[in-house]
């Protein structure tokens, strides 16, 4: 039996297929999100990796920003619950999840039993989200994936506003015009995003074990900066981008069992 979780985000689509023993048999991530062919592409790739067809899927749960548009799903559950489920499965004992995605940032508090106790989300603003890093990468003329390595070469601290991405963009352009090094600006961008999200985390309260999920968790210099900001070690969830999709697949398995027992 197979269970599919699809996480349709604002800037990426993620799919995870598990079997009845919760083993991951297929997984795919594509950096195009809701409103694109991203969801069908990742489902196709994950099915191919699992070596199965769509008809063999017993239950599908959709999550993420575009969850309501995925009409093929048997159920839709929020990414907050799905990240909670995925992390509780991957990192037993986790109590705080920091999830920074393309368009929003969330901090989720888990109970001792791994259920979602509380959560906070950013307001409608790109500051403190993956979009902020995309803007910074463009100004620094590098790929998003290169930003982490660039920041590691920083030698001097540069402060960049965490209030507004548009203001920060002008601020960075003026920093570069004054001769500030790209490496220092890259590190400043990391600090900007982490100080914003750390504020969100403090609002809800931070309890270790702290786990980071979402695409931004791949950037290890952001993770280190976040550790400095919150004063706790951070465990990056294995395959952090697909954590919500894994949670959705686990919910699909649970829902199927509930329905048939």
């Amino acid at each position: 039996m197979y269970f599919l979780g699809i996480d349709i985000g604002s800037s990426s689509s993620k799919c995870v297929i598990i079997d009845e023993n919760k083993n991951i048999v297929g997984r795919a991530v594509k950096n195009i999100g809701t409103g694109t062919n991203g969801p069908s592409v990742v489902i196709g790739e994950a099915l191919a990796k699992a070596g199965i067809t769509e008809e063999q899927i017993d239950f599908t749960v959709a999550t993420g920003y575009g969850r309501a548009n995925h009409t093929q799903a048997d159920k839709q559950i929020t990414e907050i619950s799905c990240h909670g489920k995925g992390v509780a499965h991957l990192v037993p004992g986790a109590r705080t999840i920091i999830d920074i995605g393309g368009q929003d940032a969330k901090v989720i508090k888990l109970s001792e039993t791994g259920n979602v106790d509380n959560f906070v989300m950013n307001e409608k603003c790109a500051a403190g989200t993956g979009r902020f890093l995309e803007v910074m990468a463009r100004i620094l003329n590098c790929e998003l994936s290169e930003l982490s390595e660039l920041a590691k070469k920083s030698t001097e601290e540069v402060e960049i506003s965490n209030t507004c991405t548009v203001f920060a963009e002008s601020e960075v352009i003026s920093q570069l015009a004054q001769g500030t090094k790209r490496e220092d600006v890259a590190m400043g961008a990391n600090h900007s995003i982490t100080s914003r999200v750390a504020g969100l985390a403090r609002r809800i309260g931070i309890t270790p074990i702290v786990v980071m999920t979402g695409g931004v968790a791949i950037n290890d210099s952001v993770v280190h900066s976040m550790e400095e900001q919150i004063g706790y070690d951070i465990t990056v969830a294995p395959d952090p981008q697909a954590c919500g999709a894994l949670g959705a697949a686990l919910f699909a398995l649970e829902s199927f069992n509930k329905k048939n027992n």
Partner: peptide
């Protein structure tokens, strides 16, 4: 203009 994020919050709250 958009309440998408609020929908997620309300749904997530109901789920919790």
């Amino acid at each position: 203009a958009s309440v998408e994020q609020y929908k997620t919050r309300i749904q997530a709250f109901a789920e919790t």
